[in-house]
């Protein structure tokens, strides 16, 4: 088991390494001059040259890469061109907002998707199954921004039930300690603010969670249907076990395996989707920050954020793989 975890950890190293090379290559090898991109199309050549020097772009390629890797390993992700602050610092301030959003979206997607998938699988080809299928088709076909805007219009503009933008009512001043709004409001002892923050979270989480919801529903349905046809489920029934136990223990215990893997993979989609969701809902997190950085040509911010997102995605899937091993004795005991 330990061996498996170590092996899995080691396998992530070349991917991280490759990731750094590819990100490096994007900046330095693809046509287009980042210095020119930063300064805009009509910048004077001297300025561009100065910028190239400042970025170290005049050095030989291998040296650029060594510098870049060295910085990376020291946790130096460069500085923002806009405010000259270390990128990592700003990232860490904004990341909690993204975590809050993605975790809420995941809870929504898994919390609803798994029961829906089980429901549909129990009655294949029924009306209920058909409705679930249509809903999951809409889930993967409706883009986040269309759903987000529609939710805003319906629930904020028309019904006025929920706030449309932001993480909390700007009139409430809460001391930012952890930068997790839900935690900070509780630390401040402000239940009203906590509820307000929670209300702000609902629409973005639904918008962001809709695609994972659809995928998780589909996978759960397929997995449960698959397992339900296994011989050992027939054995369980032949032993005279209650249907709840056959379903809850014998089927679900196995159906979890593909579902868990897919949950991990959805994290990637959630992080990417967060970029759009945060833009729609003016949610201050890494995603919105990245979009602002793109507009400002603040390319260290963009590059580092992508690197960090990919890193987090890898870590999450590593954790998922270990969790998978715990669920699956065939891996645990090998």
């Amino acid at each position: 088991m330990l061996q498996y975890i170590v092996r899995r950890l080691l396998s992530a190293v070349p991917v991280m390494f490759g990731l750094s090379i590819i990100l490096f290559a994007f900046i330095h090898l693809l046509p287009g001059d980042p210095a020119a991109t930063i300064l805009g199309q009509h910048a004077r050549p001297e300025l561009v040259a100065a910028m190239r020097q400042r970025l170290g772009l005049d050095l030989p390629l291998w040296q650029q890469y060594v510098n870049y890797m060295g910085d990376l390993l020291r946790g130096d992700l460069g500085r923002s061109f806009v405010n000259n602050r270390p990128v990592l610092d700003d990232f860490l301030i904004r990341f909690p907002g993204t975590i809050e959003l993605t975790v809420a979206a995941m809870i929504y997607a898994a919390g609803l998707g798994i029961p829906l998938g089980r429901f549909a699988a129990r009655r294949p080809q029924s009306t209920g199954d058909a409705i679930v299928t249509v809903v999951s088709l809409l889930g993967i076909s409706v883009p986040i921004f269309v759903l987000g805007l529609t939710l805003q219009y319906g629930f904020s503009v028309q019904l006025r039930w929920l706030p449309a933008t932001g993480r909390i009512d700007p009139r409430l001043t809460i001391e930012q300690v952890t930068h997790f709004m839900l935690i900070d409001t509780l630390l401040a002892g402000r239940v009203d603010a906590f509820i307000d923050a929670l209300r702000h979270l609902i629409l973005p989480a639904i918008a962001l969670g809709s695609i994972p919801l659809a995928i998780i529903t589909r996978i759960t349905r397929a997995a449960v249907l698959d397992v339900a046809n296994e011989d050992y489920v027939r054995t369980a029934r032949a032993k005279g076990l209650r249907e709840q136990r056959v379903d809850g223990r014998h089927i679900m215990r196995n159906a979890w395996l593909p579902v868990v893997t897919v949950l991990g993979l959805q994290v990637g989609g959630l992080l990417a989707g967060a970029v759009i969701t945060e833009t729609v809902f003016a949610w201050s997190g890494v995603g919105k920050w990245v979009v602002e950085a793109i507009e400002a040509h603040d390319y260290f911010v963009v590059q580092s954020s992508i690197l960090m997102f990919a890193f987090i995605f890898l870590i999450v899937n590593l954790i998922v793989d270990v969790g998978y091993a715990f669920l699956n004795p065939r891996i645990r005991y090998s």
């Binding site: 793109i294 963009v302 992508i306």
Partner: peptide
């Protein structure tokens, strides 16, 4: 396949965002 793993580790549209951001 390692290269493919790397590309797949960059979540979906983020890769596209990165490319457009750099290529203009």
């Amino acid at each position: 396949m390692r290269a493919v793993d790397v590309m797949l580790s960059i979540p979906g549209i983020l890769l596209a965002i990165g490319i457009v951001a750099w290529l203009g």
